[in-house]
Computed example of a mutant assay.
Amino acid sequence: MALAGALALGGCSSGASAGSSGSASADEPELTVSGAFMPQPVGDMAGGFLTVTNKGGAADTLTSVTSPLSDDIGLHESKNQKMRQVASFGIPANGELKLERGGSHIMFMNIKRKPKQGDTVEIELHFRKSDPVKVRLPVEAATHNPATEDPATEDPAHH
């Protein structure tokens, strides 16, 4: 297990992926991040949304998120119209974790500044097995919801 963590200590490449470089075995997660965005915050809180895809043969877990935007970032899930903080989100082998409006998401509390539409917010995703992944969240309109928009106009993964 320590070996999997030590394999990719070389830092983040231009593509947002984690795990070993090109030699993923069936028992390691192979993570990529796509569709990341943050709606423009209206108060001192903000939400973050993205999809983590795992093409590897082993599950992983998103355990935390860090960002210069806030010192208080939580993982939240919404079930039965109620939102609650959770310790982590599982990412199944050969599956994905979708953080989207109305569902599970990243919650930024007591943000240090209010990013405006067109800005970018830097975050780092931390996992139980894989190395951290740096992601840039483009700030979209406060009402932005890709699930209700035409998929043909959706911007592909940000690199």
Rank of each mutant, 00 (worst) to 15 (best):
V42G: 15
N80S: 08
G43A: 15
G103L: 05
A152G: 00
R84V: 13
A157L: 09
N145H: 00
E154M: 06
V42M: 14
I91S: 04
I111V: 00
E124K: 15
L7I: 15
S20F: 12
T51G: 01
V52F: 02
E149G: 02
S34P: 09
E140F: 06
L31F: 06
S130R: 13
E77V: 15
G5W: 04
S70M: 05
S70E: 04
P39D: 05
G57H: 07
G11A: 14
T61P: 04
D155T: 08
L99K: 01
K116I: 09
D72M: 04
L62H: 08
R128W: 03
L31S: 06
R128D: 07
S104N: 09
K114N: 08
N145F: 00
L7A: 12
G90L: 06
V135P: 01
K116M: 14
E154V: 07
F89E: 02
M109D: 10
L97I: 03
L3I: 14
M45D: 11
T51W: 02
T63L: 11
T32S: 15
M83E: 09
L137E: 00
A8E: 08
E28I: 12
S23Q: 14
T120K: 04
G90Q: 10
G57W: 05
P115N: 00
R136S: 07
V65R: 03
S20Q: 13
G43S: 15
L9D: 11
E30I: 11
G19Y: 11
E100I: 09
S17Q: 14
D72A: 08
G5I: 03
A16L: 14
A141V: 02
L9C: 12
L50C: 13
N94S: 10
Q117K: 09
G118L: 07
S20T: 15
M109I: 07
L3T: 15
G48A: 07
S64I: 07
